[in-house]
Design a protein around this nucleic acid. Structure first.
Lengths: 248, 248
DNA sequence: ACTAATTTTTGATTTCGATCAAGGTCGTTC
DNA sequence: GAACGACCTTGATCGAAATCAAAAATTAGT
């Protein structure tokens, strides 16, 4: 259901950050044209930093294409990724003018940006944009909490399996490549980025990926191209109950 | 600033879950009386479960007094706490009718509840309640992300110091007991609950608390009563930069 | 095509926190 | 006030992941 809806919605109002999530049926013409007028695009290369934590940030944005990460770094250099931005995800907090995290492109990335002040004005006048933002934020909070369980209690192998499952699942919904259980995708993250996401070292990530390959849970071609022959089998390795997590 | 404001706001509208956060100056009389009419109270004893993950949940609520925890459990029993509910915190997701987490009282707990349906109706008619909820949710998301850094990258000692710092800071603002740097409080959590929060075992929690005591970072009277003689010293142990985290 | 740089894999060793196992303290009940 | 149970501390040992250290595979540059 959600994948085709998303497709249609994206086609019909490609850049409205709210409509990206396929709920903007309620967007009215003048609101949409307001958004149209204030929007602009930015593109980034893999590895490029979109914004550093603490920098002034006078815009909010929605990912159009590509993947970015949110991360936090301690003074001594330890870093932890705290979020993954996929197409349609929103970044930037209305009402706060400094970035709280480092935002980095891990693939080629296009974002649809809106200057903060006019966007906030529009939000004031258009309650359902705020409502939609609330829903999106609650989803992010659920995702963050699921990630807390992963970081606090899962083994290295479970962590890797969980990350692969998340990417595979998203890829399956996005590209409809989920022919009878087999899923194929390219890892959008380096081993180091995966390590920062999972709270591991890159060596451990590499070893566990090798182990999953050895055990036939995944197949690897090169370093990035992954085939999951049996998604259920992968899910069994995640430690999650068979169901889709918090959204029971 | 915030502590006295909170006091005043709480006095003058004790149970509105929004006003608890000291921003409900915009609450109008009829909205307040709507809330008054639909509110009811529930009380729990320490250790009692407010609701189990997956259970039907037809209310939303705000903590009036006491402390509760949000936690997730894997089938094999591993559990991870994903949130701490302090007075004025809000629980329950508008638009979702099943709990996503276990909610447990760790002290005597009083909550101010509102049936979900009428509360959602009121939200529809009163945009600034939604706005306030959005702000609160964004704060929670920031807190969750700070916790992800802790879970993924901090040492056991840093984790304990961070938790003590959070409780101490909150206690200082709440009870104004922050006389020249020295802070005194009672731990509202058992060692096991702390372990579940920090992604550790209770033995490690106990050992690290002993170590901080041995090193003079904290003083302990009995098992629960803590004195922090020098808050800066405690902060140095957390691994955070001296400043207040994401709210830079 | 060849070199250089980056990323990944694999191996050897160490370390931090988990696990296993007693004891100890405190509060409650009979 | 003895006995029970809940909670906490401490010790000994183990193990999973980190760290240290090369080598292999890829990618990029000239």
């Amino acid at each position: 259901m959600s994948s085709s809806e998303t497709q249609i919605a994206n086609q019909d109002c490609a850049d409205c950050p709210i409509r990206h999530r396929a709920v903007c049926a309620r967007c009215e013409a003048d609101e949409l044209s307001m958004l149209e007028q204030m929007k602009y695009y930015r593109s980034y290369e893999p590895g490029q930093t979109v914004i550093w934590s603490g920098d002034r940030m006078d815009f909010v944005a929605s990912v159009v294409e590509g993947i970015a990460t949110l991360s936090q770094t301690m003074e001594d250099g330890r870093t932890q990724m705290v979020g993954l931005l996929l197409p349609s995800d929103f970044v930037g907090r209305p009402g706060r003018d400094h970035a709280a995290y480092d935002v980095t492109a891990t693939t080629r990335l296009t974002m649809c940006c809106f200057r903060r002040a006019p966007f906030e004005d529009l939000m004031q006048r258009t309650p359902h944009i705020g409502q939609r933002l609330l829903e999106m934020t609650l989803d992010e909070l659920d995702a963050a909490r699921e990630w807390m369980l992963l970081l606090g209690r899962k083994t290295a192998r479970e962590k890797i399996a969980s990350l692969l499952a998340i990417i595979a699942r998203r890829d399956a919904t996005l590209k409809l490549s989920a022919t009878q259980g087999q899923i194929v995708f390219d890892l959008p993250l380096t081993r180091e980025a995966m390590a920062d996401y999972l709270g591991l070292t890159l060596e451990t990530v590499s070893r566990q990926i090798s182990a999953l390959k050895r055990d036939g849970v995944i197949e690897l071609e090169g370093k990035r191209h992954v085939t999951v022959p049996d998604f259920e089998r992968l899910m069994d390795e995640t430690g999650d109950d068979s169901d889709g997590g918090v959204f029971a």
